[in-house]
Amino acid sequence: MSRQIILFYSTNQAMWAADVLKESDIKHKMIPVPRELSSDCGYCVEFFDKSKEHIDDLLINNNVEFDTIIKL
């Protein structure tokens, strides 16, 4: 099964996204950004059991700024 990962410009926004997912009871974890995806030194959020579209809407509705959601 493919993995779904949210990438951010700011690790502060990643923290906020994780908080939004937590409050919505969506299973997720914070992980280092896979090297092949970005040269950034921070972390990203991997989520489980939800569609890309669902997470996309949730984050936008909460004004969380993110780069993109990627399927690996």
Partner: peptide
């Protein structure tokens, strides 16, 4: 926070975010 993806960096980031 934000200077590495390890657990301690994430823990520090959570302190900062929760305070915000």
């Amino acid at each position: 926070p934000g200077r590495g993806g390890h657990k301690a960096a994430i823990g520090a980031g959570q302190i900062v975010f929760n305070t915000r």
